[in-house]
Design a protein around this nucleic acid. Sequence first.
DNA 1: GCAAAACTTGTATGAGCGTACAAGTTTTCT
DNA 2: AGAAAACTTGTACGCTCATACAAGTTTTGC
Lengths: 188, 188
Amino acid sequence: MSRIRDIRNEELITAAIRAVHRHGYAQVTMSDIAQEANASAASINYYFGTKEKLMEATMRRLLRLLKTATLDRLHPAKTARDRLTAIVTANFDDRLFTPAQCSLWVQFWSNAPYAPILSRLHRINRARVQSHLHAEVKQLCPPQNAAAITTTLQAYMDGIWLEAAQSETCAPAAARMDAKKLVTRLLP
Amino acid sequence: MSRIRDIRNEELITAAIRAVHRHGYAQVTMSDIAQEANASAASINYYFGTKEKLMEATMRRLLRLLKTATLDRLHPAKTARDRLTAIVTANFDDRLFTPAQCSLWVQFWSNAPYAPILSRLHRINRARVQSHLHAEVKQLCPPQNAAAITTTLQAYMDGIWLEAAQSETCAPAAARMDAKKLVTRLLP
DNA sequence: GCAAAACTTGTATGAGCGTACAAGTTTTCT
DNA sequence: AGAAAACTTGTACGCTCATACAAGTTTTGC
């Protein structure tokens, strides 16, 4: 039915990602986003109602991408170690680990405490990733080490994203290899 | 001579930290900061000239704090391992590792790419920390592992700060102990 | 083919912000 | 004590931006 609506939504979200990457979350305007999509500022309002809603939809797209990447890699994994590797490397999937998306992700993070909707999404996602990680780590090391190793892995992933957002360069394949090496270093 | 100027500068920077923590870097106004300092927005302009300059001064204070904490801990360190521990734990110093300052740090990071002055400060600081880390790590492990371990440590520190900024709780002593454990886990 | 629905856009509105400025108050210096 | 310097503040200006709206254009359904 309303295929146009879906297509336009996707286009506008993509434009929002690019515009935020270019101008920054704090300073990006509706006109910036509209320009990136070859549309008018008013039409964004027609589809999303408000800037805040657009940002929420954009965040949801990134979260969905991470979820998909995780499930895709989790599906063929048989052992606990395979599953752990799947969860960790999903963060550096080709579809996700790009300069624009890392930049956006970090900016959403840092603004989450001041926007209830973003804050909620952020909390849910973080809890999900952490429980996935923890479930596998528990089976691979003595219980008194599990929490520390889980925290280290999560901090590592966040830190790499942060660095990528700053440096404007992403090498997904290399990042996945580094992540795998860290897993074997932490859980020999 | 102009002691008042110095005192007021410090007060206003402290107020800026609290105001940014409360309202967010993106939305904080000069009035917010003024209110936090029991002053008027105009007087901030008198001391700092512009909002951007105030933010730069605030960032510089955080960087100075990290530098001081690092040097304090580096001074009594004798071995390479002691020095490495000093550099890592300095990030979780009682004076630095507080919710407000973690929050501010993360927000400055994420806005750095869009503000040349912040960007410059950020780059300089990061390079300094990294070279300090790398110098010590090199002496404690085979050379082919040094780069990866340095990156892991830096990412870990960034990740812990990010988490602290979100969760609004900092336990500096515990964070330092966790960091020490990670160092011994990575460099047995 | 045509009415209605879906979509697009230019423009107007109003709010919020940083900053300049001039007029006051306090402090310093001799 | 009194002039000058340092400091403070209320107010006003100019600007930017999100959003509302009404007037157009295109697409859909029959």
